[in-house]
């Protein structure tokens, strides 16, 4: 591996570290998995940072309760994915491409370019839909039993 690749990979890792954290815990995290993938390329030891953020037993139980078992589908899928994609070898230009794309994603390029406005962000049928969802994820507005029941009965 050339020095240029290493330097580019270091840039990429730096960029990935700035990637916003997921606000809802999932079994896998984009940020962590990509950091694990590119740190060795950059020659950085996979530190304890990702070790610590691994979900605890309680969190795994919570995730499993929220989602049902994969019923053999996932296994099949994963096998095919692995067959389709051989071992990875990076060169400098490839990593630069990754950086460029990641930059576009992280700067909200397409959200701003293809601006949809309040027509979709505050949809006429249910203007507080996204705001409510967002507040709940951020922990700002708390959903109570009654607001939850209101959604069940009236749909919004």
């Amino acid at each position: 591996m050339s020095q240029a690749t290493k330097e580019s990979a270091k840039q990429l890792v730096k960029l990935l570290e700035k990637f916003p954290k997921e606000r809802v815990k999932h079994l896998i995290s984009f940020k962590e998995s990509q950091l694990d993938r590119f740190r060795p390329v950059a020659g950085i030891e996979t530190g304890s940072a990702s070790e610590q953020s691994k979900p605890s037993l309680a969190e795994i139980k919570d995730i499993i309760n929220r989602t049902s078992g994969p019923l053999g589908l996932k296994k099949d899928l994963l096998k095919k994915v692995q067959e389709a994609l051989p071992e990875e070898h990076f060169n400098d230009t490839q990593i630069q491409e990754q950086i460029r794309s990641l930059n576009a994603i992280m700067s909200d390029k397409y959200k701003n370019y293809y601006a949809v406005g309040d027509k979709l962000y505050k949809p006429a049928g249910n203007p507080i839909y996204y705001k409510r969802l967002h507040d709940e994820i951020e922990g700002k507005g708390k959903e109570t039993f009654f607001t939850a029941m209101r959604t069940v009965v009236f749909g919004k």
Binding site: P20, H26, I28, L77, V81, S107, K111
Partner: peptide, 20 residues
């Protein structure tokens, strides 16, 4: 609603099956 980074993670987890 929140931005391209969150949308990209959602697409990665669902459409791309969370492949590394």
């Amino acid at each position: 609603f929140s931005g391209d980074a969150a949308l990209a993670s959602a697409i990665w987890r669902n459409l791309f099956g969370g492949k590394k």
